[in-house]
Design a protein around this nucleic acid. Structure first.
Lengths: 229, 229
DNA sequence: CGAATACTTGATGAGACTCAAGCGCCGTGG
DNA sequence: CCACGGCGCTTGAGTCTCATCAAGTATTCG
């Protein structure tokens, strides 16, 4: 099931294709998403959909990690969110995707047709509630992110990011970063150098440990929280 | 109907109270919100609800302008959005309001009970669609805002803001700003001084005119758009 | 008219970006 | 096995933008 038609990414940007559709059924899905979808396998750094693509589907991650982002004309990128197992992404108000979605690691997602969704939702009470809750939660997250981007120093952004990841992964004090420094920078509205420098500084201050580039040990969570003002 | 129990605002922050409840019915509302709500009149710079308040209601603006915002421990403020006639605000995923809502000008809003909303929505197809669309649009707006906060210079932020306001008001090239410089600054993640300086610079560059502090004339919309990269 | 409030302008400094090397890891090929 | 690149990350030096501090002007309101 891990076929991958790996097309080489160009210029550091993810490229399209690289997935194999397969039928998928989730009649007893715990999240309340009992719709029928199609599983897709996506190679690392490949696009699931592009900015401007017709929004035919939305997606759920069943394996790997996905980022949604937008590109500015000057080539810079703003990452809106990271999605991992169980997360749903790709909802749109309009007919087009406003952001691109790309797999960070080799990933598996389920694509659900959007067409007819509204009708189904109107009939299914449970589904309706789920979607509501989901939409509201997304909004809340987007607003948290705005707060972070608008009113925080580099150190505060990094601290908040680490806590966010730690909370999501749940696993103790050691964090595995699946995303690159560039991804983190584009998520926090910083440069790669500032991310690196700030992490190094936090290590020097004994707040975190960096046994390797992609592994972070939270040593002083109190100090980390204190940074958030 | 313009009774206002004006309580003096403290320290530049909006204070609670200052509204008079009155029954309101909107059976043939064009927006699809045919729920029964209660109209409230709110004096300028007074709070509609505070951060942390129980989220019993959501609201629709029928007159005036409202801002939603959060306060940081250092006293700074991040404004999430401005709402005007017809806009709906105050939806929450959880039990509490995550942001405060305050009237910028003397305003009238209708409060709708949240309790039982989900049931009503599940039954009413049209209402259900409307809520969906609304939630999705809110998300899209929140993400635009993130993009602006994360990846834009002061000039770009101001330019985007002016275009946003011009688009919403729709009326030609003259913009009436109902909000203060501080509001604009807190919305864009800038300081009041930078907002002022940037507007002055744009005027010197003949991109805009500033006949008075709260009035902006868009002179060179092309240049304004060009700033947005 | 005076006081308060809102806004503008100037000088200075801190924080983050830019440009530029310099590491360290890893896969490739000799 | 080691040399060689490539890539991702780190570190340093200099610059620039925007925040801060501090007046100064305009407008509103009693």
């Amino acid at each position: 099931m891990s076929v991958s038609l790996a097309v080489a990414p160009k210029q550091g940007h993810a490229s399209t294709a690289g997935y194999v559709p397969a039928p998928w059924n989730a009649p007893e899905d715990r999240d309340g998403l009992d719709l029928t979808g199609v599983a897709m396998h996506v190679a690392a750094d490949h696009q699931i959909y592009a900015e401007g693509d017709e929004a035919r589907c939305f997606y759920k991650v069943v394996g790997g990690v996905v980022r949604t982002c937008r590109f500015l004309s000057d080539g810079r990128r703003q990452i809106d969110a990271f999605y991992r197992e169980g997360d749903v992404f790709g909802f749109e108000a309009g007919a087009e995707h406003r952001m691109a979605a790309e797999a960070i690691t080799e990933s598996t997602v389920i694509a659900y047709r959007r067409r007819g969704l509204e009708a189904v939702v109107a009939q299914d009470d449970r589904l309706s509630r789920w979607f509501f809750s989901h939409a509201m939660t997304c909004m809340a997250l987007a607003r948290e992110h705005s707060l972070l981007l608008g009113r925080a120093s580099a150190a505060q952004k990094i601290a908040a990011f680490l806590q966010e990841v730690a909370l999501r992964d749940g696993s103790g004090n050691v964090i595995e970063l699946v995303m690159s420094r560039q991804d983190i920078a584009d998520y926090l509205g910083l440069t790669i150098e500032t991310v690196s420098r700030t992490l190094s500084q936090l290590e020097r201050d004994r707040v975190i440990g960096l046994p390797s580039a992609r592994r972070v040990v939270l040593k002083d969570c109190r100090a980390l929280r204190a940074l958030n003002a």
